[in-house]
Design a protein around this nucleic acid. Structure first.
Length: 198
DNA sequence: CCCTGATTCGC
DNA sequence: GCGAATCAGG
């Protein structure tokens, strides 16, 4: 794969959006995150109030309040002259919890992201599968939405409207979005569900 | 251990 | 120019 205009553009876009190199790499396909990072650097667009950094100190502190350095040397045209801090982080303002008096103040609202898997509540699912789920849910990592990764089980547990809500977070089964136990209840062969056999 | 970006250097 | 290997921090 080569860095075509389109790919570079997508790279720029995603990088600008604060996407991680690995995410960009996955999106682009055919490249590794190393390739992405390398390209990012070659393109000159790098710093971004990132996470890791050993080179932090190497930063110029000139652009603090005033710009005393005229710098006539126009060798590095920065497309981003603005002192942007960080990509906007969706911060939960202050949700007023009035619905459930029995609950303590709501601390955080989990934004409903993508379609949630069907909660099997008390369905006709393999009893042993259910048992397994109940078992592992005790060991669940109880991750928040933002803590989920590609290899953490994304099975939601509890009521999203309460604090008693989290994602399983256990290691996923290869290729699946859920851990083994939850895969078991998530992907039913749709068998003994009453077909339209009638 | 998982992740992140940064740098180096042979190609 | 490219990106794997390596490094380094969280």
């Amino acid at each position: 794969m080569s860095w075509t205009d389109e790919r570079v553009e997508l790279l720029k876009k995603m990088w600008g959006e604060g996407q991680s190199a690995s995410q960009i790499a996955k999106e682009l396909g055919g490249v590794t995150r190393n390739a992405v990072i390398g390209k990012v650097h070659r393109l000159g667009l790098s710093n971004r109030a990132t996470t890791t950094s050993k080179t932090t100190e190497a930063k110029e502190k000139s652009a603090a309040a005033a710009a005393p350095a005229p710098k006539p040397a126009a060798a590095a045209p920065k497309p981003k002259p603005q002192p942007k801090t960080e990509p906007a982080r969706p911060q939960t303002p202050a949700p007023a919890a009035t619905s459930k008096p029995s609950l303590p103040a709501r601390k955080q609202i989990i934004p409903a992201g993508q379609p949630l898997p069907p909660q099997p509540s008390a369905n006709e699912i393999s009893p042993e599968a259910l048992a397994k789920v109940n078992e592992i849910e005790k060991k669940a990592k109880k991750l928040t939405l933002m803590e989920l990764t590609e290899r953490t089980c994304k099975w939601p547990v509890g009521d999203p409207a309460t604090e008693d809500f989290w994602f399983c977070g256990l290691p996923v089964q290869q290729g699946k979005p859920y851990c083994e136990a939850h895969v078991g209840v998530a992907f039913q062969p749709m068998n003994n569900r009453r077909d339209r056999k009638r």
